[in-house]
Structures are given as structure tokens and as C-alpha cells.
């Protein structure tokens, strides 16, 4: 099975072609000056050409579904949906934090992917490294860095940190972790479409039809409009 993975959840755009257990090729462009709308398809076209693959030969598409930048997620998902619809192929959405944890999972370690959620918040979830992949231990969360401390208290396990939110962690938290903290090398620190593609393959093995074409990004944060409306409705009571 040949699967094309896409990730535009952060400022990094990446696309990857995975065949079975093998990575055929991957393109990463970490150039925030250009929008995903400008980057994604040219990068994708280059990868296909370089790999000598026709787009019709791709059997399935996997998209990084979030959390992340709302607009970035939608560009990636809209692109994946377009391909899936045009070629009548399955589409699999992969939580961005799952894919990030997959970049660097070490058995026995606590894996903590961190993405900048703006306004002083981090998107995160905690994973336990196992031999066959990371296993998620918490919900997908948007929280201030301080609240992460509680999750780190338990145990002596090393804590593997990755993602563009590491800088928001703060010195105090890093000092508290001390020797336990391990910041993943830059090459594996950012979201990668290859991880998205591998996890997409696993998901499609379970559910060969993939996700419905109406699938939405994993926003994690509600839009402010929805929050305001809920508050207003709660105040006014049931209609």
C-alpha cells in the first residue's frame, strides 16, 4: 500500500510517501514566511516527481488533523479531502500529537509532545513509550505550561520533549525535571508527514474505509464564538 502523508499543523509543511513499512521520500519546508497555501502543493508535486510516483498510484491519504494552527489544519485537511475525493481513495486523519510522539518514542519513557497553542497555552498529551509505538495516557489538552508540572511529578522516568512548544516550557519546569528531561534533536523535533503516514497506515489497517469526507480537524480548543454562545445560553436558560 502506498500512502501519502501531509502535515501543515504548525509553521512546518511536510509531505511523505510511505510504501508498506518503508519511507520512500519526505519533503519538509520550515519556512514560516510562506503560507501553506503557497508551499504545500509545489512541495507535494516535487516529492511525487522525485519518487517517480503518479498521484493516481497513491492508495490512501493521511492528514495531520490537529491540534495546531486552525488555518494550517484546514489547508492540510482540505488538500487531503480533495485528493481522496478526486481519486476515490480512503482518507485517514491522524492526531498531530500522536504523530509527533511517534517521531521519537523510547520504551519506558514518558513522551511529551508540545505545540504552541498561542496566548500562553500549549497543546499536549502524554504518552508512554512502548516497543510498538507510543501509547497515549491523557486527553488532548490545551493548557498553560505550569499545569504540566503535575503530570511530570509521578515516577522517575525520563521525559522526552519535542515540538515547537518546548520554548514555552520555561526554565523552572525544565529545572524541576533536571536530568529526566530529554529534548529531542532538531531533526526529529518538528511534526513530520512520515510519522503521519505510518500512523495513517495503522489506522487504515483497522478501518480500511478511513474517515468520512466530512471529517473535521481536531481543534481541541472551541472557537471563541461557540464559547460565548454557550455562556449566553447558560445565562438565559433553556429556550
Amino acid at each position: 500500500m502506498l500512502i501519502l502523508g501531509l502535515d501543515t499543523a504548525t509553521a512546518t509543511a511536510s509531505v511523505a510517501l510511505v510504501k508498506g513499512k518503508e519511507l520512500l521520500g519526505e519533503e519538509i519546508l520550515n519556512i514560516p514566511q510562506k503560507t501553506h497555501s503557497q508551499k504545500l502543493l509545489p512541495v507535494l508535486a516535487r516529492l511525487l516527481k522525485g519518487a517517480g510516483v503518479q498521484v493516481e498510484d497513491v492508495d490512501a491519504f493521511a492528514v495531520s488533523a490537529g491540534p495546531g494552527s486552525f488555518t494550517g489544519l484546514r489547508i492540510g485537511l482540505a488538500t487531503g479531502k480533495g485528493f481522496a475525493q478526486a481519486l476515490s481513495k480512503p482518507l485517514s486523519t491522524v492526531p498531530t500529537l500522536d504523530a509527533l510522539a511517534y517521531n521519537y518514542y523510547f520504551p519506558g519513557a514518558l513522551i511529551c509532545p508540545l505545540l504552541d497553542a498561542r496566548q500562553g497555552l500549549l497543546y499536549t498529551a502524554l504518552y508512554r513509550g512502548e516497543r510498538n509505538g507510543p501509547r497515549r495516557q491523557t486527553d488532548y489538552m490545551a493548557l498553560p505550561p505550569e499545569e504540566l508540572a503535575d503530570f511530570f511529578l509521578v515516577g522517575e522516568k525520563p521525559v522526552i520533549l519535542l515540538g515547537d512548544g518546548i520554548e514555552l516550557l520555561g526554565k523552572a519546569l525544565l529545572a524541576q525535571l533536571g536530568e529526566r528531561a530529554f529534548i529531542v534533536p532538531a531533526a526529529s523535533r518538528l511534526p513530520r508527514a512520515s510519522s503521519v503516514a505510518f500512523l495513517g497506515l495503522e489506522a487504515l489497517a483497522e478501518n480500511p474505509l478511513g474517515d468520512p469526507i466530512t471529517v473535521e480537524p481536531l481543534y481541541v480548543r472551541k472557537s471563541a464564538a461557540e464559547i460565548n454562545l454557550e455562556k449566553r445560553r447558560a445565562r438565559e436558560g433553556p429556550p
Binding site: T71, Q119, A225, I227, N228
Partner: peptide, 10 residues
């Protein structure tokens, strides 16, 4: 028409 700050971020 922005319901909150994050919409401007987008």
C-alpha cells in the same frame, strides 16, 4: 465580528 482573540491569530 471576532468572537475572541484567537480568531485574529488565524
Amino acid at each position: 465580528r471576532l468572537a475572541g482573540p484567537e480568531e485574529l491569530e488565524e
